[in-house]
Amino acid sequence: MPAEGPTRPMRGAPCWVSLLARDLKAAQDFYATVLGWTFRPTTLGEEFSLALADGDPVAGIGALAPSIQVAVAWTAYFSVEDADDTAARIRERGATVAVGPLRIGPGRAALAADRDGATFGFWEGETLPWSVGHGKAPACLELRTRDAFAAAIFYAEVFDWAKPGGCEVTYEDEQVLVRDGTHTVAALRGGAVEAAPDPRVRPQWHVHFPVRDLEKVTTAARSAGGSVLPVDPAVDEDAGRRAVIRDPDGGIFSVTAIPS
Rank of each mutant, 00 (worst) to 15 (best):
Q204C: 05
R146L: 02
R146N: 05
V211G: 05
P2K: 13
F209P: 00
T96W: 07
A76R: 02
A118E: 11
T218K: 08
K163E: 15
T33M: 10
V17H: 05
A187M: 15
R146A: 02
T75A: 06
M10P: 05
G121N: 09
G55S: 00
G191L: 03
G226M: 07
D180E: 12
F209R: 04
G45D: 11
L143E: 14
E126I: 01
A137V: 13
E215R: 14
A186V: 06
L35C: 11
G166T: 01
W37P: 10
G117V: 00
A118H: 01
F159E: 05
F154L: 11
A83K: 07
T256P: 02
D232H: 02
Y77Q: 05
A195W: 06
V17R: 02
R146S: 06
H206R: 09
L141A: 00
E194Q: 13
G36L: 04
A83M: 11
L52I: 04
R93P: 14
D180N: 15
G105A: 08
G240P: 00
E4D: 12
T127Q: 14
E168H: 14
P248M: 02
P164Y: 11
E46F: 11
L50E: 11
R11I: 13
L177K: 06
D147C: 13
V193N: 09
E215H: 07
I61K: 02
T219K: 08
T184W: 08
S227N: 06
V255K: 02
H208M: 01
Q175W: 11
A243G: 12
Q28I: 01
D173L: 12
P2M: 13
R189P: 04
T96C: 10
A21I: 03
W130K: 13
T119Q: 05
S79M: 10
P197E: 06
A239Q: 07
A220D: 12
H183P: 00
A148C: 14
D173H: 15
E142V: 03
D213G: 03
D54Y: 10
